[in-house]
Design a binder for these strands. Structure first.
Lengths: 240, 240
DNA sequence: TTAAAACTGTAACGAATGTTACAAAGCGGA
DNA sequence: TCCGCTTTGTAACATTCGTTACAGTTTTAA
């Protein structure tokens, strides 16, 4: 049993304390009282580091041998292209764990470059220490399994979505999912531009597809409001 | 502590015994001795069920509240379309765990329909009992975390692959990955048809793309054998 | 109210790919 | 060797989508 390595080192300006009342709202520590969490953290090694806005947190390719949790502020994950061009993948705010799928598994390298989008604090727990936590507390074990499983499920969903080839299929799938079992098929949507980005297509192409589907009597489009008129035909679109 | 519920029920012909020497080669139980595994299984409830070739194992949509491990034979996973048309997703042979990402997480339903592709035996461990195993044995915990994390990583890779829009980009990414750091860029491949299926494109389209890339001096194609001639240009293809 | 910005609808054109079809080349077994 | 099967190369045509451009509409802010 040991105290945090740096509790005595608060004079170093890139170090700070954990905030149990914030961390316990993180998916990994959900359901644990702030007091209980503080007690658990006294039994393991960890660090808390501060980052300024724009500062690099981890570089893509670095070995991922520690769990990082955003305790304060927000960070973004970017993927580096073959040339060096970066593409933003994800935004993450406190309290949120980073790269939970890369702490274990075959490929223990960060797939993305992470940098702070505002002044931020991150808690860094070495893998071995985190395993201790998992063994100490069944709730954390369950939370972590849920987190990582939910991520795998999310990816599976995204893959399924990408398996729809045409824009009309994507629209149909999206609308049918949104409508669910409701037979009153009045649906509201976000902006067309955002929808297009989510579908990975251009805005004019999405508008054209919507227009054609309206002409075919499948839906009724009024700017941001879309009404499903013919669920049967929509389903047939997805059969291919 | 209790014995398997059905050790005494061997007269029922759809029931069988576990085979520790096979199961310990499964990703979940890797590194555990057959004897150790047999002992662990004596401390939990579980079932072993036999299936005939073609028989249904689980239906898509069923609640996933147990871990299934193929102990003998092989099964296939199929996704059901909106209409009822099925698409084969994956083949799995013994000893392999099924749907490890759906035992935990938000969506506790099987996303696929599983059926036996040969006479098969599956070990079924209720979720609660499996959690016991995770707590009893740190190796199993580590194995399971690795399994599910590796799956998430695999899906991430597949998503990245799908993010390449054109066929030429997919080819370039595939070949550069395959070539790795080897500068002697002689590469062997599988059949064009299989490659096309893997890329999610049609065979003639793939052949056309290969032909064009050969004409541009990027590669040299001789049926199943592909030689990379210009790595720099290949990389530029991926910058887009 | 009014001007600027953001959003939406639409059109023409070109690039990429699917579809279909057919011929040539390799491969295996009788 | 010869026949049949699989794989590969190629071509013409249709479809889908991206690109670019522009005009009309709605929202926002001054």
């Amino acid at each position: 049993m040991c105290l945090c390595d740096f509790v005595a080192g608060k004079t170093l300006d890139n170090l700070a304390m954990i905030q149990p009342e914030i961390l316990c709202q993180s998916p990994v520590f959900r359901g644990i009282s702030p007091e209980g969490l503080a007690e658990l953290f006294q039994q393991i090694h960890y660090q808390v580091k501060s980052y300024q806005k724009g500062e690099l947190v981890v570089n893509a390719g670095e070995i991922c041998d520690r769990l990082l949790i955003v305790q304060e502020g927000s960070v973004k994950a970017e993927m580096t292209d073959y040339s060096g061009k970066t593409i933003k993948i994800e935004d993450m705010s406190a309290p949120w764990p980073l790269a939970t799928a890369f702490l274990f598994g075959r490929e223990n390298k960060f797939p993305v470059t992470v940098s702070a989008t505002s002044d931020a604090q991150l808690v860094s727990i070495p893998k071995q220490e985190f395993v201790k936590l998992l063994q100490l507390n069944a709730l954390i074990l369950n939370n972590y399994l849920n987190t990582i499983s939910t991520r795998a499920q999310f990816l599976t969903q995204k893959l399924k979505f990408l398996s729809f080839k045409t824009i009309k299929q994507k629209i149909a799938h999206y609308l049918l999912d949104l409508a669910g079992d409701r037979l009153q098929t009045v649906e509201i949507a976000q902006s067309q531009g955002q929808l297009a980005e989510m579908f990975g297509v251009t805005r004019p192409s999405l508008a054209r597809a919507l227009g054609e589907m309206a002409q075919e009597g499948l839906i009724d489009v009024d700017r941001r409001y879309i009404k499903i008129l013919d669920k049967t035909k929509m389903n047939q679109l997805l059969i291919g």
